[in-house]
């Protein structure tokens, strides 16, 4: 949890300092991809807490989900159907599920410690 927050903060700072920008037309795709990445990070945190973390699964999930979400948004734009909703609902829902699991695990650990 701590590492992820620190990493995101550091990344934002670095990103704001870097002089790169991209075409505003892609911002929808990027934002959906960011949501997918966020979900992957939360999933990774959860797996880490459960001691089930697998590096290759995490990395493929991180990039795969992001690319798939962006691609879905793009296809949706071409077809005139807002397909990116699929990505938003899936990853948004999973984000909250993962967060709930992380919360439970952390709370459970603390209780366990205080009981001892």
């Amino acid at each position: 949890m701590f590492f992820a927050l620190m990493g995101i903060l550091a990344g934002v700072v670095i990103g704001l300092m870097l002089p790169y920008t991209y075409n505003a037309a892609y911002s929808l795709y990027i934002s959906v991809a960011i949501l997918a990445c966020l979900d992957s990070v939360f999933g990774g945190l959860k797996a880490n807490l459960e001691n089930k973390f697998d590096t290759s699964i995490f990395i493929t999930g991180f990039f795969g989900n992001a690319i798939l979400a962006a691609f879905l948004a793009y296809i949706g734009d071409r077809l005139g159907v807002p397909l990116y909703y699929a990505a938003i609902f899936t990853f948004g829902g999973r984000l909250f599920e993962n967060f709930a699991s992380i919360r439970r695990i952390l709370l459970f650990k603390r209780k366990h410690k205080s009981n001892e």
Partner: peptide, 17 residues
């Protein structure tokens, strides 16, 4: 690894900001 990818995610987010 999570730290590295979080940084990457943060960079993306900053781009969006």
């Amino acid at each position: 690894i999570i730290l590295i990818f979080s940084v990457l995610l943060g960079v993306f987010m900053a781009g969006q900001f």
